[in-house]
Lab assay of single mutants.
Amino acid sequence: TTVEVQGVEYRFDNPEEAEKFAKKMAKSLNLRVELHGNKWRVE
């Protein structure tokens, strides 16, 4: 599972970890998070 934060990609073996990371990043950067296939995008 991939998390893309403002163009930078982070890879996770565990989808739940990816989701937690994406939501945490979105909250700290005041952005929103969307799931596209198996990629979380924070923008």
Rank of each mutant, 00 (worst) to 15 (best):
Arg32Tyr: 09
Thr2Asn: 05
Arg32Leu: 10
Arg41Ile: 15
Leu29Gly: 04
Leu31Asp: 03
Glu17Ser: 09
Glu17Ala: 10
Glu17Gln: 09
Leu35Ala: 05
Glu19Pro: 00
Arg32Thr: 12
Gly7Ala: 03
Val8Gly: 03
Val33Gln: 03
Glu9Asp: 06
Glu16Asp: 13
Pro15Asp: 07
Val5Lys: 01
Asn30Pro: 01
Lys20Ser: 11
Val8Lys: 12
Lys20Pro: 02
Lys20Val: 11
Glu16Arg: 11
Ala18Gly: 05
Glu4Thr: 11
Lys24Ser: 13
Glu34Ser: 13
Asp13Tyr: 07
His36Leu: 12
Arg32His: 13
Lys23His: 13
Gly37Met: 06
Thr1Asp: 07
Met25Cys: 15
Glu19His: 06
Gly7Ile: 02
Leu35Trp: 13
Val8Ala: 07
Ala18His: 00
Lys23Arg: 13
Glu16Phe: 12
Lys24Ala: 15
Glu43Gln: 10
Lys20His: 11
Glu16Asn: 10
Glu43Asp: 13
Trp40Val: 03
Val33Met: 11
Val5Trp: 06
Asn38Met: 06
Glu16Gln: 11
Glu9Pro: 07
Gly37Pro: 03
Val33Asn: 02
Gly7Asn: 05
Lys20Gly: 07
Leu29Pro: 03
Asn30Thr: 03
Lys27Leu: 15
Leu35Val: 07
Gly7Thr: 03
Lys39Val: 15
His36Ile: 14
Arg41Asp: 04
Asn38Glu: 08
Ala22Lys: 01
Val3Tyr: 01
Lys23Tyr: 13
Arg32Ala: 11
Arg11His: 14
Leu29Val: 02
Arg11Phe: 14
Gly37Lys: 05
Asn30Val: 04
Trp40Ser: 02
Val3Pro: 00
Ser28Val: 14
Val42Ser: 03
Glu17Arg: 06
Lys24Val: 11
Leu35Lys: 12
Ala22Cys: 05
Val42Phe: 05
Tyr10Leu: 04
Ala18Asp: 00
Val42Tyr: 03
Arg11Thr: 12
Ala22Gly: 02
Leu35Phe: 14
Val33Leu: 12
Trp40His: 03
Phe21Asp: 01
Lys20Phe: 09
Asp13Val: 09
Leu29Asn: 05
Val42Met: 05
Ser28Trp: 14
Arg11Cys: 15
Trp40Cys: 04
Phe12Asn: 00
Glu19Asp: 03
Lys23Ser: 05
Arg32Cys: 11
Lys24Asn: 13
Leu31Tyr: 06
Tyr10Lys: 02
Thr2Asp: 05
Glu4Asn: 09
Ala26Cys: 08
Leu35Arg: 12
Trp40Thr: 02
Ser28Tyr: 13
Lys39Leu: 11
Ala18Pro: 00
Tyr10Arg: 03
Glu34Lys: 10
Lys24Met: 14
Pro15His: 07
Asn14Met: 07
Thr1His: 14
His36Asn: 10
Gly7Met: 04
Val5Tyr: 08
Lys24Pro: 00
Leu31Cys: 13
Asn38Pro: 05
Glu9Lys: 06
Asn14Asp: 14
Val8Gln: 07
Lys24Leu: 14
Glu17His: 07
Val42Ala: 04
Tyr10Thr: 04
Thr1Gly: 08
Asp13Cys: 14
Val3His: 00
Ala26Pro: 00
Arg11Val: 13
Asp13Ile: 08
Leu29Met: 07
Glu17Val: 08
Ala18Ile: 00
Asn38Arg: 06
Tyr10Pro: 00
Ala22Met: 02
Pro15Arg: 07
Ala18Trp: 01
Phe21Ser: 01
Asn14Lys: 09
Met25Gly: 01
Ala22Leu: 03
Lys23Gln: 09
Thr2Arg: 07
Gly7Ser: 05
Val33Ala: 15
Gln6Glu: 11
Val42Arg: 00
Val3Asp: 01
Asn38Gly: 13
Gly7Arg: 03
Pro15Ile: 05
Ala18Asn: 00
Gly37Gln: 08
Gly7Lys: 04
Gly7Leu: 03
Lys23Val: 10
Ser28Met: 15
Ser28Glu: 15
Val42Glu: 04
Val3Thr: 01
Trp40Lys: 02
Ser28Pro: 04
Glu19Ser: 05
Arg32Pro: 11
Asn30Cys: 14
Val3Ile: 02
Lys23Ala: 06
Phe21Ile: 01
Lys23Glu: 08
Val3Gln: 00
Glu4Phe: 11
Asn14Ala: 08
His36Ser: 10
Asn14Leu: 10
Lys39Met: 11
His36Pro: 01
Asp13Lys: 09
Val3Cys: 12
Asn30Gly: 14
Lys27Gly: 12
Val8Arg: 10
Glu17Trp: 05
Ala22Arg: 01
Glu9Gly: 05
Arg32Ile: 10
Tyr10Ile: 05
Gln6Tyr: 10
Asp13Pro: 08
Gln6Asn: 10
Lys24Thr: 13
Asn38Lys: 07
Leu29Asp: 04
Ala22Tyr: 01
Asn38Ala: 06
Lys39Ala: 09
Asn38Gln: 08
Lys27Cys: 15
Glu19Asn: 03
Trp40Ala: 02
Phe21Glu: 01
Glu4Lys: 05
Tyr10Ser: 02
Lys39Tyr: 07
Pro15Val: 06
Ala22Gln: 00
Glu4Leu: 13
Lys20Cys: 15
Asn38Leu: 06
Lys24Glu: 15
Arg41Trp: 11
Asp13Ala: 09
Asp13His: 09
Gly7Cys: 13
Leu31Thr: 07
Glu9Ile: 13
Glu17Asp: 12
Leu35Tyr: 14
Arg32Trp: 08
Lys24Tyr: 15
Val42Thr: 04
Glu4Trp: 11
Asn30Phe: 05
Glu34Phe: 13
Ala22Asp: 00
Asn30Ser: 06
Asn30His: 09
Trp40Pro: 02
Glu34Tyr: 14
Glu4Pro: 00
Lys24Trp: 15
Asn38Trp: 04
Glu19Gln: 06
Gly37His: 06
Glu9Leu: 13
Trp40Leu: 05
Val3Arg: 00
Gly7Gln: 03
Arg11Asp: 08
Ala26Trp: 02
Asn30Lys: 09
Ser28Ala: 15
Thr2Ala: 08
Glu16His: 12
Glu16Trp: 12
Glu4Ser: 12
Lys20Glu: 13
Arg41Thr: 13
Leu31Ile: 05
Val3Glu: 00
Pro15Asn: 07
Met25Arg: 03
Asp13Arg: 07
Phe21Cys: 14
Gly37Arg: 04
Glu17Gly: 04
Lys23Gly: 04
Arg41His: 11
Arg41Val: 15
